[in-house]
């Protein structure tokens, strides 16, 4: 094999490996989505299409719930916009990290951006500078995307194939992954934990005290946390 080919393969392997925790987290959630959507009256084709074209978990659950309640299309679409607006902020940060990667690759990467793929990708900053680094990010995002679509399809087709108790316990998976991603950098640089803490507190105040929707609370928490980083990281060495 040529050296470039070997490098591509190695990036692909690393991408799948990095994306694997997302798969564990997505599968039970996607299956549950498929089951719920089917119960609400969506066809297997419709619910799988929603996972393919919308690809945003929380908003898909919300939409299915609203469809069941008979809410108008306009309201569902507006609520989706608000709930998913946080990806705009994340995409900005992600694109700034990937300046070296060509636009034709960046565009599909942004389409595969979710909370989880952003969280994982943004912790792998070195790959953006490596040769064939774009393959790493693409593989990671495609792995996650396919597991989301596959899980929704399976849930709609077969019903709940994971026992309920286990599926409910697997709800912690994505949070455990987020924790596993953020602890190593905090261990190296305690200041980064302070940024996360500011975001957590802001998010909690927004959602529990001001009773804002979870979408806005996460957006505000992320922005305030990010701004705190401007002062916390005075030397700009993140």
């Amino acid at each position: 094999m040529t050296p470039t080919k070997t490098q591509s393969n190695s990036m692909m392997k690393q991408g799948i490996k990095a994306g694997f925790p997302i798969v564990i987290g997505y599968l039970p959630v996607a299956i549950t989505f498929g089951v719920l959507a089917k119960q609400t009256g969506l066809s297997l084709f419709e619910l799988t299409s929603m996972s393919i074209f919308v690809y945003a978990g929380a908003s898909q659950f919300m939409a299915v719930n609203m469809i069941g309640l008979g809410v108008s299309a306009t309201e569902i679409i507006l609520a989706t916009f608000i709930l998913n607006f946080r990806h705009f902020v994340m995409s900005f940060s992600f694109m700034n990290q990937l300046r070296m990667i060509p636009l034709r690759v960046k565009v599909p990467l942004t389409l595969g951006l979710t909370d989880e793929t952003f969280a994982v990708s943004s912790m792998y900053t070195e790959e953006a500078k490596k040769e064939k680094g774009d393959i790493f990010y693409l593989t990671l995002l495609i792995t996650a995307y396919l597991s989301w679509i596959g899980g929704s399809f399976l849930g709609g087709l077969l019903g709940n194939i994971i026992p309920e108790k286990l599926s409910q316990s697997m709800g912690i998976a994505l949070y455990a992954m987020f924790i596993g991603l953020i602890i190593p950098p905090i261990k190296k640089e305690l200041k980064l934990g302070l940024i996360a803490l500011v975001a957590m507190i802001t998010n909690t105040i927004c959602s529990e005290v001001f009773l804002l929707s979870s979408g806005w609370s996460i957006v505000i928490g992320t922005i305030i946390g990010g701004l705190s980083g401007v002062f916390i990281q005075k030397e700009g060495n993140i």
């Binding site: 940060s93 952003f118 934990g193 940024i195 500011v198 992320t222």
Partner: peptide
């Protein structure tokens, strides 16, 4: 650059 840590926290 601080956004990923803030987003994870939130």
């Amino acid at each position: 650059n601080a956004i990923p840590y803030a987003a994870l926290g939130a």
